[in-house]
Simulated scan of single mutants.
Amino acid sequence: MSGERVVVGVSGSLASLAALRAAVTEARHSGRELTAVIVWETPEGRALSVRHPDRIWAAHWARQARKRLDQAFEEALGGTPTDVPVRKLVVRGGPGRVLRDVAHKEGHLLVVGGRPRAWWAPVRQYVRWNVRCPLLTVPAPAHPKRAAWTLRRVGAEDFIKL
């Protein structure tokens, strides 16, 4: 299985954390390397940063992406697994194209997360039509009804013990 790997797109969302867990499980079972990819871009976008590049600003956003990737491993798995070869990539660009370029062989497996009914999700649609390798889409974990509505209304005072 030399050169074969499980590639997972990580953003820090609940769906991408579920995808990371599924990718680690698949890498363990198949003996493949796990390649976790986080994609970043400066807030002003690619066009402006090409015309007026700022290396310090770009380095800042690359560091922030690296922190999000490390945090995703902590939240999803309690740290980087030691029983699977892991490669962490922090890449500047568009998520769909970067994932397509990293998972470019037929022996690879691409794992992405997504909300169950978000069939229109641009990254998922892009990789679905543009990668040659198998694609595994992992849904975000379900949450209780109205949980998001309730959590948006929680304030700091709700956490203070009296």
Rank of each mutant, 00 (worst) to 15 (best):
S2Q: 14
E4R: 10
R5T: 02
V6Q: 03
V7H: 04
G12I: 02
S13K: 05
L14E: 15
L14C: 11
L17E: 10
A19W: 02
L20S: 04
R21I: 05
T25G: 11
E26K: 02
E26I: 00
A27Q: 00
A27D: 00
R28L: 02
S30E: 07
L34V: 02
V37S: 01
W40D: 07
E41Y: 08
E41N: 11
E44N: 09
R46T: 14
L48I: 12
S49H: 09
V50H: 13
V50C: 12
P53V: 04
P53L: 01
I56Q: 13
W57A: 12
A58S: 11
A58Q: 10
H60E: 07
H60F: 08
W61I: 03
W61F: 11
A62I: 03
Q64T: 11
A65K: 09
A65R: 03
R66K: 12
R66N: 08
K67F: 14
L69W: 09
D70N: 09
D70K: 10
D70G: 08
Q71A: 13
A72I: 09
F73K: 07
F73M: 08
A76L: 08
L77I: 07
L77A: 09
G78T: 07
G78A: 04
G79M: 05
G79Y: 05
T80M: 10
P81V: 06
T82Q: 13
V84C: 04
V84N: 06
V84H: 01
V86N: 03
V86D: 02
R87N: 08
K88N: 10
L89A: 01
V91P: 04
G94K: 13
P95C: 09
R97T: 11
V98W: 06
V98Y: 07
L99G: 02
R100L: 02
R100V: 08
D101R: 11
D101C: 09
V102R: 00
K105A: 13
K105D: 13
K105H: 12
K105E: 13
E106D: 10
G107D: 02
H108F: 05
L110I: 02
V111D: 00
V111H: 00
V112Q: 02
G113L: 06
G113Q: 06
P116W: 12
P116V: 14
A118C: 11
A118D: 15
W119Q: 15
W120F: 13
A121N: 12
P122E: 07
V123Y: 04
V127M: 03
V127I: 03
R128H: 14
W129I: 12
V131R: 04
L135P: 00
L136C: 04
L136D: 00
P141A: 03
P141V: 05
A142F: 14
P144E: 10
K145R: 15
R146P: 11
R146W: 15
R146T: 14
A147R: 13
A147K: 12
A148H: 14
L151A: 10
L151W: 11
R152Q: 11
V154K: 07
A156W: 13
A156R: 15
D158F: 09
